[in-house]
Design a protein around this nucleic acid. Structure first.
Lengths: 281, 281
DNA sequence: GGCAGCGATACCGCTGGGGTATCGGCGCAG
DNA sequence: CTGCGCCGATACCCCAGCGGTATCGCTGCC
């Protein structure tokens, strides 16, 4: 199976429409139809159910969609990491990715501790959207990541736990609850007029609910300051809050664990050094 | 990057010889030279150092070898799992792989417990050589495996611990040590005339040493019975020993943990059921 | 019944992958 | 030092197959 065929199939399986998939791939529709037919013939299996009004995945097709995405990520990773190894030949570097606005203090300490090691190399810090770190590791854009359990999935990655912390409720200054010394999750559910915000899912859609839609942390904090929302964040994010916001510990919220993670087949000395520095913090 | 190019490169990188690689790939040598040159041009990086007497990997080349193998495994996995999904359409099955001659009793209990579940599907049990389970999971030949820490690597797999046991020394009946109630690792080192056997490595080579070379368990047990070797095995393997062999507990050997493992992106209900049954044992 | 949307088919041109023959460089035996 | 053998690169040819345009056949809908 060639990666070209896989890319074509994944495009059709995602769009469920040959025309749109062809456009996305930058080719005409007939060659795409032919390529998928040929793939099905070679696999000896129907991957798509064609009706005259569109396309649906068969059971085998949905297996190939899931496995094919993973395979394409692995191929992309091979490509990117090879190019990086070639470009950085001589003075290698390592790419660390983390969610914007999380674990800032810990990251600073980690970078300082690692830089003090004798064989330290340059660390390129990249920020990405929530939940994207795993993808960055799997497709080779990054070599090592900081993740946060239970928000990020760690399946298929090697990890080391770094720290655990509780969560706090973030409220606008002056809110009646700001006098409390502690809150419970049940209290939040009925926070008068302060719904929790809704983040976009990976596909761009949103869950139903009353909360305002936010895209980044600045929006979130602004909405809280305006008295339109509340939020639940890890304790450590208090350091970055504007002073018109108040936090109250949330005693029964799940605690947040920060982990350092890397792709399992990584044999890089630099990644090993970072992990060592991180566990010694 | 196409899988064809990757397969070509991996072949050359493994053989370090264009002629042999071409033969292995079933093509002539000149197209192979051209394909590798084209790959290097497209990657913008030298992957091989050619001398007139052979070939060596550059730094970027060894990165591509490691990452490329992983990518090809992922592509193979997509292919195999799709074919299996298509072939088994309607009544799905699941492939479990384990080392021959290990954890037999536990496996039997697991299969019985799983078969008793309401939505159980057929389980195809495959046996493979030591240390090969990980590969079977990664390239799609199997869906779930029984592994043994610390012998098998679990990097890149999701796992659940099932049981932990000590190890015993296996001796021929009549050996002076068979009277002992316990032994230490230091005692084994100087077992008079009974060296530990040597297993072949993945590449077919052997470590140096006095022990006889063995390829499977039957050979091993026969050699022990003949008084030519001793072995260290997990306690549970006592059940399968011939009665001309005697075991003595080894009190300071690392304990052996049996785990159930599956590929991280697995979303199969059957695998989930097996894992559930296993953890409930 | 006509039309619009969608995937399949027919046909064509040309890129590029694979083959054979041969070259050029280097280590080595004599 | 010279001739030979080994190895990868180059030259050149052929055709499989990919991509393009034009069109068909089916189906749901106004």
């Amino acid at each position: 199976m060639e990666t070209r065929e896989l890319r074509y199939f994944v495009a059709v399986a995602e769009e469920l429409h040959f025309g749109r998939a062809a456009e996305r791939l930058g080719i005409a529709q007939p060659p795409l139809s032919r390529a998928i037919q040929q793939l099905e013939r070679r696999m000896g299996a129907a991957l798509l159910d064609r009706t005259s009004r569109g396309v649906a995945l068969t059971e085998a097709g949905s297996v190939l969609l899931r496995e094919g995405r993973a395979a394409l990520d692995a191929v992309d990773a091979a490509d990117r990491r090879t190019r990086r190894a070639a470009a950085a030949s001589g003075r290698p570097g390592v790419v660390l990715v983390t969610k914007a606005g999380a674990s800032g203090e810990l990251l600073a300490k980690l970078l300082a501790a690692y830089a003090a090691e004798p064989d330290a190399v340059a660390v390129d810090v990249q920020l990405c959207g929530p939940g994207e770190q795993e993808r960055w590791l799997r497709d080779g854009r990054a070599d090592v990541a900081l993740l946060h359990r239970p928000f990020d999935s760690t399946t298929g990655l090697d990890t080391e736990e770094l720290s655990t912390e509780g969560q706090v409720v973030v409220l606008p200054a002056g809110h009646p609850f700001t006098g409390r010394s502690r809150l419970r999750v049940a209290d939040i559910a009925e926070l008068p007029g302060l719904p929790l915000p809704r983040w976009p899912r990976h596909d761009g859609s949103h869950s139903d609910g009353p909360g305002p839609v936010v895209r980044d942390n600045t929006q979130l904090l602004q909405l809280i300051a305006l008295g339109r929302a509340a939020a639940i964040l890890p304790e450590s994010s208090r350091a970055q809050l504007r002073d018109d916001l108040v936090t109250v510990p949330l005693v029964d919220a799940p605690s947040v664990t920060t982990l350092i993670a890397w792709p399992p087949q990584s044999r890089s000395l630099a990644v090993a050094g970072l992990v060592r520095a991180a566990t010694r913090l």
